[in-house]
Design a binder for these strands. Structure first.
Lengths: 247, 247
DNA sequence: CGGCTGCTTGAACTTGTTCAACAGCGGTGG
DNA sequence: CCACCGCTGTTGAACAAGTTCAAGCAGCCG
């Protein structure tokens, strides 16, 4: 299975062959490439499609007038951006590629057709949207309450688990192609302090991060240190009751 | 119009008489009272209904094991909690009343019936859900990038504008029944520093806050100081194209 | 009256920021 | 081929913002 969206949704529900086919169809809609650090869409734009990340990392962000920037969310392969964007007139934030990104632009019509024909997919996309909202809430907790060390540990745990869901980890390793500046903007820390915090995690023998490759040496310890409780990711196959009964 | 939800949604779309009637029906579902600082629902619960706040203030919050608490969202009259909660098995956060709260518990069945019969309401509820998500993102920006002064100013602006949408302001005044401790937990500040920050806003002649009554003495100045840009609230009647054509 | 909650103040302290400089690396153009 | 540039990561030191601890006051309610 090389379709990251299908892989992710199968954590929620069992997908039939026709569900799979429908998701594959989504992945083949108008496929585009974007270079690293280029915008996919900007605040004020009015999009006419939904983006599905196929490969690479992207982010949502907002900037304040004086240049301060907050990364609001990190988008990984299999992430679908703003299902019902069609209702709001304009984007209130921007999205940018962190690495080179391939994404499919799915039109409203295609999306509606798929959700109409495949109710299990509709259900699963709902689950995905609700998890996305839960992640956003957890980030608020991090930004508001966690210390620098906890915050950085937490985001590493979260990204690792999310990457594992779409098959992008290898044992306790994963590609981790984000710069320290971007990680700092995501955690609300200065780049200098983020650097020192990473060093602290390395010194504690919790992680290795070098050459865009992350190894989590002791995930349980990192989770404890970061007060990371994965239940907000709702990974416990909650939708199995809607499982496919076709082959 | 004493229905805060209808009042809020009418900022997005024109509501027909039957839309109004349907929203009034929602407000009459199983009406409950909750005392101040009591939970409406707890992390781990599995709700079987959606809450519609009719009067009073509430909040969503999460606590960390060691007692640190982050208020994730503030719920005002007219706010509807988690439309599609039915999909996720358990709550990943709690909700509590800040003041005494009256709310209607709307069952899945009633909600589905209304949205099926009144497509304009469905559309408007979508708009509301997307605005809620946008608010959550803006809070991330505040927590991650804004200084204490900006953060406090920003939340005051936001709450004032949201209260105005549901008719709970009077000129530049509004009831503001939240304690400093709760405001501190919402802004990620200590209660002591929140107190000093409020004093700074008072000293700058921007606000008066006394006896649970907030007066914004200079909204434009407060907006500038807080880098408050209301476009994330999507208030510009974006859904007028779906306006009712019945009386 | 006593005890509670919410607000306020002072002072010491801690965490994270800012500023500045430098090293390593890869790409580009002379 | 080498010089140079820009980007990323790293380090040190001074600094600022916000926290913590501790105490006190006002109003309210039983």
């Amino acid at each position: 299975m090389d379709n990251p969206l299908a892989r992710k949704l199968s954590h929620f529900t069992r997908l039939s062959a026709s569900d799979q086919a429908a998701l594959d169809l989504l992945s083949r809609q108008r496929v585009r490439q974007v270079n690293a650090r280029h915008d996919l869409i900007r605040e004020g734009d009015r999009p006419d499609h939904v983006n599905l990340i196929l490969s690479g990392w992207a982010c949502r962000y907002k900037t304040l007038e004086d240049g301060r920037r907050q990364i609001i969310a990190i988008l990984l392969p299999g992430d679908l951006c703003d299902l019902n964007i069609f209702i709001l007139r304009t984007m209130d934030h921007s999205m940018a590629a962190i690495t080179p990104v391939t994404h499919a632009e799915v039109s409203r019509e295609v999306l509606e057709e798929v959700t109409l024909k495949q109710p299990r997919i509709t259900q699963a996309l709902w689950w995905d949207a609700l998890v996305t909202a839960a992640i956003q809430r957890e980030w608020s907790v991090s930004l508001g309450q966690r210390t620098a060390l906890e915050r950085v540990g937490h985001i590493l745990c979260e990204l690792f688990v999310r990457l594992r869901m779409v098959g992008l980890t290898n044992g306790n390793c994963c590609e981790f192609p984000i710069t320290q500046v971007d990680l700092a903007d995501a955690t609300g820390l200065s780049a200098v302090h983020l650097n020192r915090t990473l060093q602290e995690l390395r010194a504690g023998e919790l992680i290795v991060l070098r050459d865009r490759l992350l190894t989590i040496r002791d995930l349980p310890a990192l989770q404890v240190l970061s007060l990371f409780n994965p239940n907000y990711l709702h990974l416990d196959a909650e939708g199995q009751q809607y499982g496919a009964n076709e082959p």
